[in-house]
Computed example of a mutant assay.
Amino acid sequence: MNITPERPHEESTHGGGGDDGGCLSYYGHDDDHAGGGGTLSYNLHDDDDHEGGALQLLSPAPITLEDHTVTPGENTAGLWARRAQVVDYAIVSGSRTRAGAYVAWNCLIETFEGAQFTVRKRYSEFFLLHEQLKSTFPRSVKYLPELPPKSVISKFRPKFLESRRQGLSYFLSCILLNPQFAGSPLVKDFLLHS
């Protein structure tokens, strides 16, 4: 594939007639053209003697939030966690009929000092933290991600639980990588007191 710039009203080198031979043109302004208002076209030609490849569309990679700061600075004084994620869950049984059963979410936190710890939290605790942060930081609500939705019917289904795990992990990462939220006693109490 090669790119050939062509000025309007000049002969094209890529063949005659109405067939462009599979070329793609881009038209933009060319201030160097006599008169100052012409266009410049770029044609992409398929030539057998030039190596080239087709353009390839890549699907986006999943987003992972992780802070690569070595140590917090003056604008990030409230930060203390390098990484936070909800790694898995456990279904805690109630009775034989699952009455009273609930899901406990295992949260892995890594600090700037390299220490790691895991805490188990219920969805209701995440919900309470979300509500407390909304009322404590009313001007920062736009930085507070929504929690994944509740479901009475799909509550223990693996697909639903995996979707919820990802949503809770995103929520936790956003909270702990935001200096205002991470420095809050609400967040520290949430993680350090079970």
Rank of each mutant, 00 (worst) to 15 (best):
P185S: 07
G16K: 15
Q56E: 09
D46P: 12
D49T: 10
P8Q: 14
F190G: 00
H33M: 02
Y27R: 15
L186H: 13
G28M: 14
E146Y: 09
V152Y: 06
Y102H: 13
A182P: 09
P158A: 06
N106I: 10
D67K: 02
A81D: 03
I109G: 05
S135Q: 05
P62G: 01
T4E: 15
P138H: 06
G28N: 14
K155D: 08
L191S: 01
P145A: 02
E66I: 12
Y89H: 01
D30Y: 15
I91C: 01
R7Q: 06
Q116E: 05
K155A: 10
P185Y: 09
D20V: 15
P158W: 11
G18T: 10
L176W: 03
R157I: 00
Q166P: 06
E125K: 07
S124E: 05
R139A: 12
L177P: 02
S163M: 11
P72D: 02
A61I: 09
S163C: 12
Y123H: 07
G37C: 13
Q180N: 12
A34S: 15
E131R: 04
K155C: 08
V141I: 13
G21A: 11
G35A: 07
P148I: 02
Y102A: 09
I153F: 11
D20I: 14
D30N: 15
A99N: 11
H14L: 13
K155F: 07
P60K: 08
T118M: 13
R164D: 04
H29Y: 09
L108P: 01
D48S: 10
D189C: 13
D88K: 08
A182W: 08
L24T: 10
R96T: 13
V87L: 15
S59T: 10
W80C: 00
L79V: 04
T111V: 07
K121C: 06
Y102E: 09
N178H: 14
T69I: 01
L191K: 01
K159Q: 07
T136C: 15
L44S: 05
N178A: 10
G94E: 04
T76L: 14
Q132M: 13
R120V: 13
P72W: 04
L65W: 02
L191I: 00
Q166V: 09
E51M: 05
S93L: 14
N178R: 12
D88W: 03
K159F: 04
N178F: 14
V87R: 14
R120H: 12
L176Y: 02
F127P: 02
G100I: 05
R157V: 02
L147G: 00
Y143P: 00
P138I: 06
T136Q: 15
T69N: 00
I63A: 05
